[in-house]
């Protein structure tokens, strides 16, 4: 079991996301530590990219703010090292492939291991293209977390069978961002995953309210929330840490309720 899959042993997992360096790397450190204190079981940190094609407007703006403020891959590794002085919460990078490719696959994953990054999610590297970096990631003990979407269908079995960490179940068509309702048959997707793998399934894209989180957590092993948190950071900036912690507490409580 990796540190990441262990994180699913504490009931349903709450996974929070922030964009690294939005608005500053120092605040990213406080937000990650704060989310861990508030009960987040895993924290995802986005490495900002100039052209985040899987992101909706909220996270697009966060990427732009972080890059304008000078966030770099090395800077974000530095922030992770500071986080690691204060918490053991599993940390997963969400990054597009090009920054990793340019860093050098082996160098990147070795640095992940040294800094204390437990996994990566690369939305523009589908199953078929993971072969060029997965051996490096595995060598350094970094989980490559794959996505499964409402259109994956017959692809789910092979993706799940090769899964590291957890499977990121994309709740809806389109890009990241808050949605009023989610109509995808999450239970059906999770059932397909279960047939092929023991890896936990966490559902994300569009989740913002405790009610949505509670509902979706019934079908999956955890929920992932990004845009709703990033929106708090966007609105409150350096004063956002307590608000994010309060939000994470409410979300974790919502998925921990027993019927």
């Amino acid at each position: 079991m990796s540190k990441i899959s262990d994180a699913f042993r504490n009931g349903k997992a709450f996974i929070g996301f922030v964009t690294g360096g939005d608005p500053t790397l120092d605040l990213t450190v406080e937000l990650v530590v704060g989310m861990a204190e508030a009960g987040a079981d895993i924290v995802e940190i986005g490495i900002p990219f100039s052209d985040p094609i899987a992101e909706g407007e909220v996270i697009q703006r966060a990427n732009a703010r972080a890059l304008n403020a000078g966030a770099s891959v090395r800077g974000i590794f530095g922030a992770v090292r500071k986080v690691r002085e204060r918490t053991d919460v599993p940390i997963v990078f969400l990054t597009y492939l090009n920054p990793v490719f340019r860093y050098g696959y082996d160098e990147f994953f070795a640095e992940c291991r040294d800094a204390g990054v437990d996994g990566v999610i690369i939305p523009d590297a589908p199953f078929e293209e993971q072969g060029e970096f997965k051996p490096s990631a595995r060598k350094h003990g970094v989980d490559v977390i794959s996505l499964v979407s409402p259109t994956s269908e017959d692809r789910i079995a092979k993706i799940a069978a090769d899964a590291d960490g957890y499977l990121y179940v994309v709740s809806s068509m389109g890009v990241t961002g808050v949605r009023g309702s989610i109509s995808t048959d999450i239970s059906g997707i999770v059932a397909s995953i279960r047939r092929a793998s023991d890896a936990p399934a966490a559902v994300g894209f569009g989740i913002s309210t405790p009610e949505q989180a509670c509902e979706l957590s019934k079908a999956a092993d955890g929920v992932i929330v990004g845009s709703a948190i990033v929106r708090i950071v966007e609105e409150y900036g350096k004063d956002s840490v307590e608000r994010v912690k309060d939000y994470v507490r409410r979300m974790k409580a919502a998925i921990s309720e027993r019927p």
Binding site: D124, T151, D154, R155
Partner: peptide, 10 residues
């Protein structure tokens, strides 16, 4: 190659 989101793969 085919470096695209999973949603588009099929």
């Amino acid at each position: 190659g085919q470096y695209i989101p999973e949603t588009l793969m099929n």
